[in-house]
Each structure stands twice: as C-alpha cells, then as structure tokens.
C-alpha cells in the first residue's frame, strides 16, 4: 500500500473528478447537479496543491491559475452540457484558455496558430454543422445523451492519470523548479526555464529570441522537420481524399 499512500494526492482527486464528470453527464434520470459540481470543485482544489507555477512572479501565477481554471471548468462544461451548440462554444473557450497557457510559456506562435486553426476554423465548422443539423423541436435524445458515459469517463481519466504520473516523475527527476520547497510529489506546471533542445542547430544564446520567428523556423524545419513533413503529408492525403469523395458537379449535387 506504499504506492497508494505515496500517490493518494493524485489518485483521490482523479477519482473524485471521474465521479464528478460521470455524475454531471446528461442522462435520462435527473441527478442533482450540485453533487457533481461539489465533487469536481473538490477535485480541482485538491490537485491545485500539486501545481507549482514559477515562484515569485505574482502576475504569472495569477494568470496561470485563471487560464488553467478556465480551461478545466470549460472542459467539464463542454462534456456535460446538454446543448451541442453550447458544448462547441465551451470547446472554443477551452482552446482559448489553453492558448493563454501557451502564451505564458513563451510560445506565441503556437498560441496564435492554435487560435487560428482550432478556434477560428475547426470549431466554427463544428458550430456550422451543429446549427445546420439541429433543428428546433426535432432535437431528440441521440445528440443530447452520451451513449457510454461510464466507459468514456473512466478511459478519459485513466489517460489523464497516466499523463499526470509521468509529469510527476519528470518533476521529481529534473527538479529545475525555482520553488525551493519543491517536494518530490509535486510537479512543476510552468517550467522555470526552457531547456534548449540538445539536438537544436542554433544555440539559444539570446533569451529574447525565444518564441520569435527565427527560432520558431529553426525549430520547426530543423529539429522537428520529420514530424512537420509527416503531419503535412497526412493533411495532404486527407485533402486529396476529401476531394476524391466529394461528388462531381455532373452528378447533380451543387
């Protein structure tokens, strides 16, 4: 039982969060929502103790917690809202909050690109489809109730738990947190300093250059060239596939 004792700080909030999300999922039976909300809040407060933003920088910590709370709460609402349109809007808020976190971590390009691609295009397309598909009065239960709420919640939280455990291991090992009182159980949510990629071609001698276009280009088309090309190829294949599937004009659509 050593393991569980050592990790109860992580396991209990995870279980609580899992229960909260399952409880709040829309279902045929009316459940008092307050139970799920309280459980979720308790989980958030418990896990909050493990998040150590960079010490000393007051504004940074406040911003981190604002963005993080907005992201987690919007994500919970996105899963548990009955109305698909609202779910899509909560999804947009999640994206924006996460982009705020990216900005805090000196990744402005990633942040802006995520906003353009996800918030500006993909979620708009979601909304487009939902608004077209959802006619007033005909909204039946099939798009308001999850099919497998328990399974989905459990699997999701197992994934979250694995991620958190891994992060915790890393935080304990490298210990670069500026927080003097870092305990081995805690992990750093905002890394104290950005370690240069050892494979990178350009040494980051100028800290102001982090996040600039030059460094970004080096990183994307130097360090991660293979990943970028693979991703590009996948997207190209998807585009060609979409064009191939789409009916021809001679077939009478459009």
């Amino acid at each position: 039982m050593d393991w569980s004792k050592e990790n109860e700080l992580l396991v209990i909030p995870l279980l609580l969060g899992c229960f909260a999300v399952w409880w709040l999922m829309p279902s045929a039976k009316k459940r008092p929502r307050i139970v799920g909300v309280l459980a979720g809040l308790a989980a958030c407060i418990m896990i909050q103790g493990m998040l150590l933003p960079q010490a000393g920088d007051y504004i940074r910590s406040v911003l981190f917690f604002v963005f993080a709370a907005a992201a987690v709460i919007s994500a919970g609402l996105m899963i548990t809202d009955r109305n698909p349109v609202y779910s899509a809007l909560w999804f947009a808020l999640v994206t924006l909050s996460v982009c705020g976190l990216f900005l805090l971590n000196a990744a402005p390009f990633l942040s802006a690109a995520t906003i353009i691609v996800y918030a500006g295009a993909i979620i708009v397309t979601f909304l487009f489809v939902i608004m077209l598909a959802q006619q007033a009065g005909t909204a039946t239960s099939y798009d308001q109730q999850p099919i497998q709420p328990l399974m989905a919640t459990v699997v999701g939280f197992i994934l979250l738990g694995v991620l958190l455990f891994t992060l915790q291991e890393w935080g304990a090992i490298d210990g670069t947190s500026t927080n003097e009182h870092a305990e081995p159980r805690q992990f750093i949510a905002v890394p104290a300093e950005i370690q240069p990629n050892p494979l990178s071609q350009a040494p980051h001698d100028n800290p102001h250059e982090i996040g600039s276009l030059r460094v970004l280009g080096r990183s994307l088309f130097g360090d991660y060239l293979f990943a970028v090309e693979i991703a590009g190829t996948v997207l190209l294949i998807a585009t060609i596939g979409a064009i191939a599937i789409a009916p021809r004009r001679a077939q009478g659509t459009l």
Binding site: P108, F109, S111, A112, A113, I115, I116, A119, G120, A121, G211, S212, L213
Partner: peptide
C-alpha cells in the same frame, strides 16, 4: 514579434 499572426488569430 508575431504581430501579423496575432492579428489573424484575433480577427479569425
């Protein structure tokens, strides 16, 4: 430094 991208992100 990424002012143009910022504008496109916000206007999107």
């Amino acid at each position: 430094d990424l002012g143009l991208v910022f504008i496109f992100a916000v206007t999107s």
